[in-house]
């Protein structure tokens, strides 16, 4: 077991190194002049030249790569071309908002998804099953950026139930103490029992959280359904049935428990997907997170920022995969 984990970790490191190198190459061939950007919209030739020296762009490709890796080893991702601030600082500032959104939507996704999957499997081939299946396929087929706009119009523009975007209302932000422990507002405000902030944050996160949860809902529902259907045909379930245990207990306590392995893998997959989906969703909801950050970075080709986010997401992917592997390895059914 330990050897397996160490091996996986080492492989993960290797992959990360590859990711960093590929990112570096990709970003260097994106056509843009970082020096001109660094100086600003009305740069003069002399300023651009000076910036080229300042940014080390006149060095050879390999020297630049070496410097980049050396800096990275110290946790330095370079400075953003647009804001002239260290990318690491900015990532840290934007990360909690994204994490909060990702966690919440995965949470919603897993619970609703599991529920739908179970209902679907229990009523296989009945109309409830068809409806659930249709719904779960539909949720992974909806263009999230489109449904986001639509829901905004309905819930803010027409019904006026929920705010349009952002994390907090202006009044709360200006005139209330905002707790800052993890940076995840829901969690922090609950811990400090700051209900004004909690309520406000909850109202703000509902829409983007739901839009982002759509994909995990469908994914988890589909996976749970097929895993359950397999398990329900196993002998021990049949045995349980013949003992006269109620269908509900069989489903929830025996079958579901044993289908958690594959579902866990799917959940890690869903987290990864949700993370990327923030790139499309956050800017629509003015959500001050990584996705919004990279959306602006892509528009202005701010390559250190793009690299920073890419490397960050790749690191999370590698860890998520590792986690999925470990869950599978720890699953008694697989181990035996």
């Amino acid at each position: 077991m330990r050897i397996f984990i160490i091996k996986r970790l080492l492989l993960g490191l290797l992959v990360l190194f590859g990711v960093i190198s590929v990112t570096f190459v990709i970003v260097r061939v994106i056509p843009s002049d970082p020096a001109a950007q660094w100086v600003g919209p009305r740069a003069t030739i002399e300023q651009i030249e000076a910036a080229r020296v300042e940014l080390g762009l006149n060095d050879s490709f390999f020297v630049q790569y070496g410097n980049f890796v050396a800096d990275l080893a110290q946790g330095d991702l370079g400075k953003s071309i647009r804001t002239h601030q260290p990318v690491m600082t900015e990532l840290k500032a934007f990360l909690p908002a994204t994490l909060e959104l990702v966690f919440l939507s995965t949470f919603i996704g897993v619970f609703l998804g599991l529920y739908l999957g179970v209902v679907s499997a229990r009523r296989k081939d009945q109309w409830v099953d068809h409806l659930c299946r249709f719904f779960s396929v539909a949720t992974v087929s909806i263009p999230a950026f489109w449904i986001g706009l639509l829901l905004q119009y309905v819930f803010y523009g027409t019904l006026d139930w929920l705010p349009l975007g952002e994390r907090l209302s202006m009044n709360v932000k200006l005139f209330h103490e905002i707790p800052d422990i993890t940076g995840m507002l829901l969690f922090d405000s609950l811990i400090t029992w700051n209900l004004v902030v909690f309520w406000d944050a909850l109202k703000h996160i509902l829409l983007p959280g739901f839009v982002m949860a759509l994909f995990p809902i469908g994914l988890v529902a589909r996976m749970t359904r097929s895993a359950l259907l397999e398990i329900l045909n196993e002998d021990y379930i049949k045995a349980a049935r013949s003992y006269g245990l109620s269908e509900r207990i069989i489903m929830w306590s025996y079958a579901l428990k044993n289908s958690l392995g594959p579902t866990a893998t799917v959940v890690t997959l869903a987290i990864g997907y949700t993370l990327v989906n923030t790139f499309l969703i956050e800017s629509i909801f003015s959500w001050p997170g990584i996705g919004n950050y990279i959306a602006s970075a892509v528009v202005s080709l701010d390559y250190p920022a793009i690299m920073g986010v890419t490397i960050f997401s790749a690191v999370s992917y590698v860890f998520l995969n590792l986690a999925a592997d470990m869950i599978i390895a720890l699953d008694p059914q697989v181990r035996t």
């Binding site: 590859g18 990711v19 590929v22 993370l275």
Partner: peptide
Amino acid sequence: TDIFLSFPGLL
């Protein structure tokens, strides 16, 4: 392959 799979596809 692993390296390519470690990039978020959309990114």
